[in-house]
């Protein structure tokens, strides 16, 4: 706590708030709002009831009307603050509404019905979290299945990506061979081809291979990423040549050099690539949407899309499940951000 306080009250000159400090804090504050505002809005909105979601003007906190159980009534009644004829203000529960008149009772004396014009009453609201937004889709929809699919795709694709990319990077950084530059240029060149262009041809290939609706159709086509190859190659170039040569003198085979010398030393870059890959794969939408058509093979992102109907969108479920989808990646980031920053600094990637 002490550290956080020191950080948040830091000034350029100790104990004096200069105008540069104010500017810096204003800028950083704006950054925090820009970064976290939408996420916070999403998280709070995911706990609102459908009615509260559609309310205008929107409320920041998830609010709903306070209710009270009144003897003689099966359902809890909504509470209102009512200005009575004599000018006093009382909290009454509404039994029913007829036209512009509301029949209300005092929860303390439920026998007497009081008639109140509706413009004299005002709903009493309290913060209430609509956890049902979470529990209902988790129970009704095959969310666990989607989650499992996403997990499978993310983990396997990341492992395959790390393996393939590191081997390519090893060849492109450690070995000298004719055409090495051309190979590297071609790898980097593919960075310039957007997925939308190759979507159809790759779809045809996948279909011919009979992989439609298989999770491997999502994993395999994107396994070799030019970004990853480039990132790892740049990192491996910084490894001292002497180490490789020492390993050769030590009778290590090329596979042993790769697995026992180069891979362990490339760990920081591998961690960065792993984190990127996890985020890419977890959030991937367009390609899975194209190849996964059966709901049992849906990943989370595709499952979320199902909440968005042609005529009606179930915003409360959509928001709640979006939060669920964000959580794992956020966790990965929270725990591995140390690697990301050091790794990015080391790989010289910006």
């Amino acid at each position: 706590m002490g550290k956080a306080a020191t950080l948040l009250t830091a000034t350029k000159v100790r104990g004096r708030l200069g105008w540069t400090d104010m500017l810096a804090y204003a800028y950083l504050g704006l950054g925090v709002v820009l970064m976290f505002g939408p996420v916070l809005w999403l998280a709070l909105s995911s706990l609102k009831t459908p009615a509260a979601l559609l309310e205008f003007p929107p409320s920041f906190l998830p609010l709903s009307q306070k209710t009270v159980a009144v003897p003689g009534h099966d359902k809890p009644l909504e509470l209102y603050r009512v200005r009575l004829d004599d000018g006093s203000v009382k909290e009454l529960a509404q039994v029913r509404r007829i036209g512009i008149q509301a029949q209300m009772v005092d929860p303390a004396a439920p026998q007497t019905i009081i008639r109140v014009p509706i413009d004299r009453r005002e709903p009493i609201r309290e913060v209430a979290f609509a956890w049902s937004n979470y529990s209902e889709p988790l129970a009704q929809f095959n969310f666990a299945r989607f989650f499992g699919n996403s997990l499978f795709v993310t983990i396997l694709a990341t492992l395959v990506t790390l393996l393939i990319n590191s081997m390519a990077a090893y060849a492109l950084s450690i070995y000298e061979f004719p055409g090495k530059k051309a190979a590297l240029l071609m790898v980097i060149g593919t960075l310039m081809i957007p997925i939308t262009i190759i979507l159809a041809p790759v779809f045809l290939v996948v279909t011919k291979l009979g992989l439609n609706n298989s999770l491997w159709a999502v994993i395999l086509p994107g396994a070799a990423t030019p970004t990853g190859v480039f990132l790892l190659r740049q990192y491996m170039l910084t490894l001292p040549r002497d180490l490789i040569e020492a390993a050769r003198m030590d009778k290590a085979s090329e596979w042993q050099i790769y697995a026992r010398i180069v891979m362990p030393l490339t760990l920081p870059a591998l961690a960065v690539l792993a984190i990127f890959s996890i985020m890419w794969r977890w959030n991937e939408f367009l390609w899975p949407l194209a190849v996964l058509t059966k709901s049992e093979s849906y990943t989370l992102q595709i499952g979320l899309n199902a909440f968005q109907g042609e005529l009606q969108t179930q915003w409360h479920y959509l928001l709640a499940m979006t939060v669920m989808t964000l959580l794992p990646v956020a966790m990965v980031f929270v725990f591995l951000q140390r690697f990301i920053t050091t790794g990015i600094a080391n790989t010289g990637m910006k």
Partner: peptide
């Protein structure tokens, strides 16, 4: 190949495996 010649080398940078 270097690995088959049965020679051992001490490098200027020592080239110890850091991990």
């Amino acid at each position: 190949r270097a690995s088959d010649r049965g020679l051992a080398m001490v490098f200027q940078s020592y080239a110890l495996y850091p991990h």
